[in-house]
Design a protein around this nucleic acid. Sequence first.
DNA 1: TATGAATGAGGTTTCATTCAT
DNA 2: TATGAATGAAACCTCATTCAT
Lengths: 202, 202, 202, 202
Amino acid sequence: MSEDKKRGRRELKDSPEVKQDVFDAAVEVFARYGYGAAPVQKIADAAGVNKAMLYYYFGSKEELYNLIIDKGISALEGAVAAAESENAPLEERLRSFLTAYLSVVAAQPGLARIIYREVVGVGERARQTVADHFTGSIRRLADVLEQAQREGRLANVEASLSAYSLFGMANIFISSLMLTGRSLDIDTLVDHILNLFFNGAG
Amino acid sequence: MSEDKKRGRRELKDSPEVKQDVFDAAVEVFARYGYGAAPVQKIADAAGVNKAMLYYYFGSKEELYNLIIDKGISALEGAVAAAESENAPLEERLRSFLTAYLSVVAAQPGLARIIYREVVGVGERARQTVADHFTGSIRRLADVLEQAQREGRLANVEASLSAYSLFGMANIFISSLMLTGRSLDIDTLVDHILNLFFNGAG
Amino acid sequence: MSEDKKRGRRELKDSPEVKQDVFDAAVEVFARYGYGAAPVQKIADAAGVNKAMLYYYFGSKEELYNLIIDKGISALEGAVAAAESENAPLEERLRSFLTAYLSVVAAQPGLARIIYREVVGVGERARQTVADHFTGSIRRLADVLEQAQREGRLANVEASLSAYSLFGMANIFISSLMLTGRSLDIDTLVDHILNLFFNGAG
Amino acid sequence: MSEDKKRGRRELKDSPEVKQDVFDAAVEVFARYGYGAAPVQKIADAAGVNKAMLYYYFGSKEELYNLIIDKGISALEGAVAAAESENAPLEERLRSFLTAYLSVVAAQPGLARIIYREVVGVGERARQTVADHFTGSIRRLADVLEQAQREGRLANVEASLSAYSLFGMANIFISSLMLTGRSLDIDTLVDHILNLFFNGAG
DNA sequence: TATGAATGAGGTTTCATTCAT
DNA sequence: TATGAATGAAACCTCATTCAT
């Protein structure tokens, strides 16, 4: 009796699975169309669900979108935090940071596209969240650089500008990924960025 | 009476002026709302003309949008071309390039916002235009770097990756402008980028 | 454990109680929103039960609504019937009628609001029920007046119009209650109505 | 040429006419279904217009509804004001008031139905408007009665209660009209009301 | 050139109702 | 009895576009 019902016909997916399906579909659709132009209907279709289910689980289009932004930011910040190794030498710390960050982007291009669109974005709430993330990331990077400067391991140039530069070099990889769809090799790129950062091209 | 109206207090705008008004209004509205969410009505209102005029002059919302993209790209590429000085030393060439590029962005933030949104964008035609622009810019930058390498004035690292990096460091300026609205000082930033690029921070 | 749940802290309500909870909640919600705009979900929430229970107990939104109308009419007519005293003098009979009627309205303003809305209402079935009630009430009132006329205790004006008038004077109390929320004092009002009815203001 | 276009095919109605058509259709549909349950589509259909026109002319369903309420109240108050004759004897003044009021109701039963539904209604704005109207009408009636009392032409009973009663007797006519669809004869009814009011039935 | 009016399609959201468990 | 999940229909509203003048 229970087996039949649980395996046998099983036309209904159970709740958490459906919720995840909708979430994933929303990432794809928002990534492709942008928030404003993404039809809720397309999300529901992609998830194989009735449109009303989306509202049942997420309340509104905007709440769903904000949730996606939050999860994406969390993924980025979580990966970076997990790769953090305070006692390692500077170059290794920077390598960890850049690699972790870029890996998340490469692994979840849809989420990344949504987040990076908010940099030039529209939604107030989402944009603020993304702005905070960027500001925070650069400040933490600058802290690491300043510490290295105090320990004499780095030339005494304005740390925050250097942090901007590092982050910018990483970001151009992301832009390239977004525009062309072809992905660069992360390790090679990070090698190059760090070499340039420490030794210059002169 | 008719003369009064056509010359005197100017109640009727004449054609080219109206077209420019609509164009300018469209830049503002597209920048604020994004292509999909920008109502044609809001553009017409901001320009102080009837909605149908927009169609009379530009054919459709999409054509107007594509025209804006094209003009924006032209402005960027024109400024860079005008600043080009083939026989100058490498550092000066790079400085000219970066300064010209960032100045256009700072002067027309609305246009820049629209263009940069297409990097993570939606519209096929617009996105391709922007992609071509970015690819071309980086290739031209790489050509300059390669030439310098051949002349022994630059270390022999992969030129295209260095071009990416240079472009990336410049782009963070744009991201910052878009996210916070506050603009970094262009000259200081360019100084820093070039110093980092040639000498490194190590 | 099962005993605890069924008796002790009462987590599961038993059937008749739940049914009454839903009914009471429905009165409040219909009174506030009107039939068309009252969401079934709000009724269920207010009753603290699952929405499907409402269908289990009452079949449909409309059946529940009609039941409320019927109960409300019954309350009004029951109170009036209980106060009926055939052999009392005319003034006392009228006083009983008016007092009983207005007391029910004052005691159950939600029910009254629902019923009076049907006077200018929408639902066919409900409206007919309310129409029958009003017609019947006025006819019964007219019968009393006619009997008094036959017995020479009342001037010989058209009894049905007088019944209308009596009912109307009472109804303004209800309108006032519905509009302002403040209730007039029933006894004072009835005194006044009867004084005016018998003696006039001239 | 101009004749052809202005008479000949004439499929398009011009603006004010269409706006009035929509307004009239809305009165009918709101009267039949009530605000909450009235579909905007039905209004547009009844007016022979595209649904979007309704929004073009009236902004929203609610604004249209409020406009109807306002116009209805204005019609009632305007008719009463026009019938006002300050120097006439009391009975004539009351007769004018009641006749004017009831005539408007009888002439525009849809509007009246909508307004009277707001007495037991839902919408905040509309309900307040109607409440103000009723309160004001009764106060003005009471003023007239008080003046008559000061001049010794009326017994010294509480004037505001008497005003309530007069208004109530008139209103029951309206309720009857709403419920049965059959209209009483206004003059006969007013005669009766005034006779009862001045002389009583005792 | 310029405008007010008009439309059809599609947007997000809510609803009454039912079903599997 | 009771519930969470699911659905199809329909609600209000906005949009890009066109047309008659």
